[in-house]
């Protein structure tokens, strides 16, 4: 009986070595462990046979089984070590195969620029205000000192709505009025949003566009403050060497009124194709709030002064990314959007 058991143990050892040699993965190794060393494993069976042997033979077989158990465990440990350390060959895994990319969401370039503008102004203590796009004549024109039949209404081609004599706001300036109506100075706001004008679409015109308008009202606010704020904004947006320039202009809701330009972001003012050799890029209008506007919102024009400015988001985005056609923003061509 003992001899037969020892023979069987030898065969088991051979069988184990054979199977161990072909193990390639942790799973296979685990299977091997269960087959030979598990609760119902081959080797565990022998411990049961021990009970059946005469006492003097027990130590002999027991020694032999334990020896094998140690041998198996050691071998399994070796295989496990080498498996955990193994390097896989290029033939097994080709790491140059393309990865599975996720779809990636992106923000629209125009909105990215708007986000940047908002961040800069928020950093300067401005808060963001919103207002409706379908507006009344009062907020869009009248309270901004643009009475009916005033020639400056010709400057803006307005879309009128077939309802309650409303219109689509031609600028975000109505938000100025709505804000001043709802609270007292100090006021330091920007109003970003969609605006609409009855312009036939071409490379530089769109019936819908985005504007950011700013308004600051307090005691002692001056034209010099307006210049300082716009200069520091433009320097944050376009770089610290940016310069600005003001040219007299006319808007019914500001006085003095100005158009302002920034030094060309391409050539720095030396003159190039982008600035048409002028060294300057037109941005938009600005000025001191006209006392008549304060009259509409019942602010004391003697006590308070204020300034307002506007800027076109499309214009800035087109400059920043050198985009030649405004319509690209609304076509949403994926090949365009994925470049940002």
């Amino acid at each position: 009986m003992l001899e037969r058991l020892i023979e069987k143990l030898d065969a088991l050892s051979q069988d184990f070595e054979q199977k161990a040699a072909s193990v390639k993965t942790e799973q296979e190794l685990q299977a091997l462990r269960v087959e030979f060393l598990g609760k119902k494993g081959h080797l565990t069976q022998f411990f049961r046979h021990l009970a059946e042997l005469p006492p003097e033979q027990k130590p002999l077989l027991g020694q032999k089984v334990n020896q094998l158990k140690n041998q198996f465990q050691k071998r399994i440990q070796e295989i496990s070590d080498s498996l955990q350390n193994k390097a896989v060959s290029a033939a097994e895994i080709d790491v140059t195969l393309p990865g599975n990319r996720p779809f990636a969401g992106r923000l629209h370039p125009l909105m990215q620029v708007l986000d940047e503008i908002k961040e800069i102004f928020k950093g300067m203590g401005f808060t963001v205000e919103m207002g409706p796009e379908a507006e009344t004549d009062y907020y869009n024109f009248e309270a901004l000192n643009i009475p009916k039949d005033h020639p400056s209404r010709d400057l803006q081609d307005t879309f009128y709505l077939a309802h309650n004599q409303m219109l689509l706001r031609t600028h975000t300036s109505p938000v100025q009025i709505r804000t001043m109506e709802s609270r007292k100075p100090p006021i330091r706001i920007i109003a970003p949003g969609r605006c609409f004008r009855n312009d036939t679409p071409d490379a530089t015109h769109s019936p819908m566009f985005h504007q950011v308008e700013g308004l600051v009202v307090d005691e002692g606010v001056s034209f010099a403050d307006l210049k300082g704020v716009l200069l520091s904004f433009m320097q944050k947006l376009f770089g610290k060497n940016t310069k600005i320039r003001f040219r007299p202009s006319f808007f019914p809701f500001t006085e003095p009124s100005a158009e302002y330009d920034v030094s060309c972001i391409m050539c720095g003012g030396k003159g190039c194709r982008v600035c048409k050799d002028t060294g300057w890029l037109e941005i938009s209008g600005a000025g001191m709030v006209d006392p008549a506007v304060f009259g509409f919102v019942e602010y004391d024009a003697e006590k308070y002064t204020g300034y307002a400015f506007g800027m076109g988001v499309e214009r800035i985005a087109m400059l920043k990314y050198q985009i030649g056609d405004i319509r690209m923003f609304y076509e949403n061509n994926v090949r365009f959007l994925t470049q940002f």
């Binding site: 969401g105 992106r106 969609r194 923003f329 609304y330 949403n332 994926v334």
Partner: peptide, 15 residues
């Protein structure tokens, strides 16, 4: 959040 959930932002005409 929308962008993080694989959606890309577009801007279309309101009319």
């Amino acid at each position: 959040k929308a962008a993080a959930l694989t959606l890309s932002e577009i801007v279309t005409l309101s009319m």
